[in-house]
């Protein structure tokens, strides 16, 4: 088996088996989406208007939830040392770990989004649009989050700090994701413009995330 495949399969298995795996993130997503109507009121018209934003914020928070363990678990049990000595480029290791992490936690969020969209009264076009934007945008959240996970890897309780560090960097993803989703059902802009910006950000994160997180892991070992 190719080393990248081996790493992907292993990381995916661990993410899926430990702590409820994908389910816990989806559950959290459900909880966040559920509290919104209690906060803003059950007016279906208004929920339809803010629904895409609610789903996006839920997905952002659910993504941040598991990220602090992305490298920390490996550091605590000694795996990180061995990964760094393996002769494989840390950037690619980060990339594969992010891919597996996204497949195990991000993808279930995307898949569950259409169901949760019903709770916020989105029309079918909007459901499709929000799911598509989440599919394009959540990898960027994971990759940007990996930078935060990398720089906080040596902190015992880095979870909250990680969120503080990552949220400002995730704002563009949120802006273009929500804009594209709302634009699909009429709005001042066409659907494609923000979607393409979102794609650009995801591609950019694909490079920046692994490079920065790889560098952070290199300097963190001790």
């Amino acid at each position: 088996m190719n080393w990248m495949t081996a790493l992907f399969v292993r990381e995916f298995k661990i993410a899926a088996r430990v702590g409820g795996g994908a389910l816990i993130g989806v559950l959290f997503f459900l909880a966040v989406v559920t509290v919104f109507p209690f906060g803003v009121g059950p007016d279906l018209k208004m929920l339809a208007r803010i629904g895409a934003a609610v789903l996006w914020i839920g997905a952002l928070l659910a993504t941040l939830l598991g990220l602090d363990r992305l490298f920390q678990a490996d550091r605590e049990d000694g795996t990180l040392d061995l990964l760094l000595m393996s002769g494989r480029p840390p950037e690619l290791i980060v990339l594969v770990k992010c891919a597996a992490h996204w497949a195990a936690t991000g993808l279930p969020l995307v898949i569950s989004a259409p169901v949760l969209a019903l709770f916020v009264n989105l029309e079918p076009t909007a459901i499709g649009a929000v799911t598509l934007t989440l599919l394009v945008g959540t990898p960027a959240l994971t990759l940007i989050g990996a930078v935060g996970a990398g720089v906080t890897v040596s902190l015992r309780r880095g979870g909250v700090l990680l969120s503080i560090l990552v949220i400002p960097l995730a704002i563009p993803v949120l802006i273009f994701g929500v804009s594209a989703a709302t634009a699909a059902v009429g709005g001042p802009t066409p659907f494609l413009t923000p979607l393409l910006y979102l794609c650009a950000i995801s591609l950019f994160a694909l490079v920046l995330g692994p490079v920065a997180a790889g560098a952070a892991l290199r300097v963190a070992s001790d």
């Binding site: 930078v147 720089v151 906080t152 560090l165 400002p168 563009p172 560098a215």
Partner: peptide, 16 residues
């Protein structure tokens, strides 16, 4: 760690 974070931030500032 801060240097990496700062540089990632400075790259992201124009995008933000």
């Amino acid at each position: 760690a801060n240097a990496i974070l700062t540089l990632v931030g400075v790259i992201n500032l124009p995008i933000i």
